[in-house]
Structures are given as structure tokens and as C-alpha cells.
Design a protein around this nucleic acid. Sequence first.
DNA 1: AATTTTTCCAACCGCGCGCTT
DNA 2: CAAGCGCGCGGTTGGAAAAAT
Length: 252
Amino acid sequence: MTRRLYYDENGIKRGAWSKKEDERLRAYVERHGHSNWRQLPKHAGLSRCGKSCRLRWLNYLRPGVKRGSYTQEEDELIIKLHEQLGNKWSLIAKRFPGRSDNGIKNHWHSYLRRKVECTHEEKSEFKTKASGTCKRETTKSFEPENPLLSFAAASSSNIPESSPPLWNSSATFSFGGSSVASAASEIIEEFGDTWTPPFVPENIYDLDNYYSLNFAANEADLDEYYSSFLVNNAEFLYQVMQEFPEDPKKDM
DNA sequence: AATTTTTCCAACCGCGCGCTT
DNA sequence: CAAGCGCGCGGTTGGAAAAAT
């Protein structure tokens, strides 16, 4: 699995590295270190650019570098760290001695990303939208027992166009100790106002329930999930909270 | 067995940051 | 302060190998 070898317009060698080049780079770095990547190829007698040498060293030649076959523990940790850090591959890689950021990034794009998407879909019994990436049943009937869910089912297809988006509304609701309107407007400002069909936890007043539905791994994840829930469901929440100003389970 | 499609990963590219001049 | 340089990072591509048809 290598790239075709060629020379660019400056006579710099591109493409797959030969064994001889590898040996030359390894010998030079082990002997002299790599304080200046730009000058290194010249001194090492390589027709490569510094960047290419650096990449080859970090991802392939560096002592102790691990490639291929990720364990399940590694997969799980990568997924968890990606949820917390996003695409900060260099930060994520720091938690895996021997793994390069490039390798982890590749593994994510080729395997883990889809795995995560499929897992979320499988576990979200309310999700009705089909995904092209998962070969599984994607449409499920949904018959809510909770009155809130009946409302959810009805309102998800019946939100009037004139209904003001929550983030434009002057109304505020206390929800989990914070103002939904202000939280939502902050979120919208950061992420945009893309409206997606409601994904409704069994009881919107019960964060623990929402938490478990979204498979948060630890307490630190809660805020992130809570925020994304608000983004995805802000308009729906606006209607629910008008209909049910108090938590219906409060006096139960 | 031949052909097509998918997977995987090495390598490239462009951008931004920090340091030096 | 601005310009230039070197490096690191994240996104993307190329193509061999493996799997599917």
C-alpha cells in the first residue's frame, strides 16, 4: 500500500519511501537527533523535504511505534476521548504510547466513526431517519406510553411554521437549574440553527434518563450531551414547556 | 476465475501558530 | 510591528490489499 514514486518540480522526491531511505533517515536521527527538520534531509543525504522526513520518522521509524491491530480497549478509549476532545488527534495520541496521531486519525475515519454512528443509531429507539452507513433495520414504530411522548409524537410533525424558534423567543424556562432560552441561544450562536427532528427522552425533565439514553460515559460528558440535546430539540422543548410548565412527575 | 467495490493506511497538502530577525 | 521561517496539526488523497460479487 504505497504511493507511486515521483519527483516534483524542485527535484524533491515524493511518494513511497524505500528501505534504503528509511535506513538512512533512521541512522541520521539516531545519531544526530532532529533539531531542524528542514536542514535534516540535506545533511542526511536524502532528496526529501523536511516535512516528509518528519512524518516518516514520527509515523513509521520512531522506536516503539505501533501500527495496525487496535485492541478493543484502545477503540473504546479513542471513542471516549474523541467525544471529549473532538478531532484533536495529537492530544488523543498522547494517551497511546507508540501510536501516532496519523494512525489514530486513520483508524477513526476508516472504522471507529462508522462504529459510533451505528451504535448511536441502534441504541436510539426513537431515531427514525435511515442511515446509509448501517446495514440494519432503520425504521421503527414508536408508541409512547408517557403522555409527554404522545405530545412529542404529535408535535414533531405539527410544529407550526409561525411558531417562534426558542432562541428568538423572549420566553425563558427554568430547566435543570439553567435558562433554556439563554443556553439555547448561546449554543445556536456557536453551532448554527439547524433544526433536526426531535429525539425525545422518555421524560425531558429527567436528565438522568436522558443521560442513560445517550450512553454518556462519565459525569463530564453530561454537559456536552445536554447541550446537544438542547440544540436538537429547542423548538420542541419550547412547546412542551408551554404545555407542561411543571414537571408532571414532580408530585408522583 | 475475473472483475468490481471496499477497506485501510502511508503520504501529501494547506493552514495556523510561535519564534526569530 | 511586520515579515519570514520552521514546525505541528488536521483534512484529504492515492493506491495496494482484501472482500464481495
